[in-house]
Design a protein around this nucleic acid. Structure first.
Lengths: 198, 198, 198, 198
DNA sequence: TATGAATGAGGGTTCATTCAT
DNA sequence: TATGAATGAACCCTCATTCAT
């Protein structure tokens, strides 16, 4: 008996997987990873528990699919924006604004991703693997420092900090803050933090 | 119930509680709240599970003790530093540097606190109660804006962002970054983010 | 939660539930409610503990099923008998004899019901709900007093006492007394207690 | 070190035991045997848990002491009353009225005794042992039948039934029924049940 | 493709009991 | 006498997972 989890690739199969990933995202975003049990996800999707474990080998595999899905989304919607310009400051601005737009468009997806990456117990195989799919923030920062547009800072610390700031913004956005204000405030913060001191 | 969990105050009792709180902090910091089960904490402390439930009514109560302990630590080590000056920029600087110093001194404690406050399932009774004991970052920011030392920003967004940046720094510090560099970099970032634009 | 505990209705499912309810009745009747743990019931049924919690959400739900089952039994076997006549004394006699017959047919079921209703800790959701399904003894007594067949007594005290007498008879029947003798003796007692004094 | 549970017989020792037995009675009557844990009894008595297990080898032993105490009470207050007359009907009447008086005077004691004897899991060593201390109801019944004052019934069934009726009355008395009415009603019932049929 | 059934590990909690002080 | 400390068994419950159909 061929395990459909690996080789099957029918339409229904793909549709079910997509549906379950979407549901998982919603449940994880709402309840956190721990309470996002297979039972709850199945119930939320209107299917029996067995369906989930039929399409995904195990919980780890489902959560991996969630991560992959969100990264793919982000890749599609964000990367092109950042690469429309070669100007580091412009790129950085696009990255910030674009990220916030992305959060506003897919708050659950992003929240799920954060939740998964935050909880150390949540099973996932990869982590680093997908990171590269996304615009490398650090590259932008290094380029800006080299070009003299940014002041001289530790790019890894700065990248880390900016990501943390974006994460915090996500929480606010999910609770309904004004997205326009968020963009303005956050860009002002990041701009100030990177700019050459007068 | 004349359970020692509430009224006992012998030396051994206090010592055990302290030991268990410390162990809980270590386990929570390492594994996260969900995997910080009573069993694991007990094993890590080299005692049987019963010892934990003997000294703490339940898991909630143990986690509450952890929160209280860390807040007390932070209060003692941080608050006085910030209040030595009335200058908002100086206060902010003290807050940043002091926080990082505190993280360097008690990395696990701070990580545990973060973990507890982050996970929505983790049982804890208070939350807001202790918050006020600690320096209110937002007050400093508002004061600085009023005094004209800081630019005009949304203080709640700024406070949120700074806290997120500190949280991210904590992770780096726990993995062994140079604390001096961290202080320099983070203060530069925060200073730049709040400063009046040239 | 698409748990089979609620909506499933397959043959196996019903069979298991019936089996477990029957086993629960036996164990409760033998050991009392407190010692009728899920473990013991499962062991007695020859299944693992998980099977029980799979088919019944929790212990309360299992005990509720027991209560419902016994009430349904009693309803079917007893109610019709009592209502075949309108004569209060005849009704009362049918109630006594019928109850004892029922006890003889289902001694464990009745013992379990008694045990559940007696223990205040035992979880059960309903209690009063089903009471009405069964013949209301007190109504018969009031009717008999009004019609002049019974002497003038407090009907609630009398009903309470008769029920207690039946409960005591149940214990004897379970230990193997002669059912014919029980019927004769108990009816003589109740008849004498309610009859008009010569 | 001499275990005080067995041989010690100081004043304090006896006083403590009495106090604990009294408390146990109150707790058992209120909460039932299962919830009458050592902790709760100790708390209710205002002592630590250790005190209880110091004075009583184990829970069984404490419950045994409760049983013995109540039997002794009943013996003192009830037996003499019954034996003031040789007339079986008078004796029976004294037994009924006297029992109800006793229940009214010591409702908790009697309720505790019932609770202990009812629950099969409750640890107790004796049961039958003490029964003889109390007036043997069955003897009265047999005597009355022989003397022709009572009709011809199975004395063990009748005794059992009367005891059950008294138990039911105890519950009502504990919830505050009129004791005078109870005496009247119950004696009428028992009298009717035993009397020669007109 | 789907699912009902079963399993067993593990979690938190309560409690009687033992023991050293 | 008294008690604080510790222990371990047992409880109910949740869940991920496996398997036969």
């Amino acid at each position: 008996m061929p395990s459909p989890r690996t080789d099957n690739d029918t339409f229904i199969h793909r549709a079910r997987r997509t549906q379950l990933v979407d549901t998982a995202i919603a449940v994880i975003a709402d309840l956190g990873t721990d309470r996002a049990t297979i039972s709850r996800i199945a119930a939320h999707a209107g299917v029996t528990r067995g369906v989930v474990t039929y399409h995904f080998r195990d919980r780890t595999s489902l959560f991996d699919a969630v991560v992959a899905h969100v990264y793919e989304l982000a890749h599609r919607e964000l990367d092109t924006r950042v690469h429309t310009t070669n100007d580091p400051r412009e790129s950085l601005r696009e990255f910030i604004i674009g990220s916030l737009d992305f959060y506003a468009d897919h708050p659950a997806a992003m929240a799920a991703l954060s939740a998964i990456y935050r909880s150390p117990d949540t099973p996932r195989s990869d982590r680093a693997e997908h990171r590269s799919e996304i615009t490398d923030l650090q590259d932008i920062l290094v380029a800006g420092t080299k070009s003299g547009q940014f002041r001289d800072f530790d790019p890894s610390v700065m990248a880390d900090t900016i990501r943390a700031a974006l994460d915090a913004a996500l929480v606010r956005i999910r609770s309904g803050t004004d997205i326009v204000g968020e963009k303005r405030e956050l860009w002002a913060i990041v701009d100030g933090a990177t700019r050459i001191t007068g």
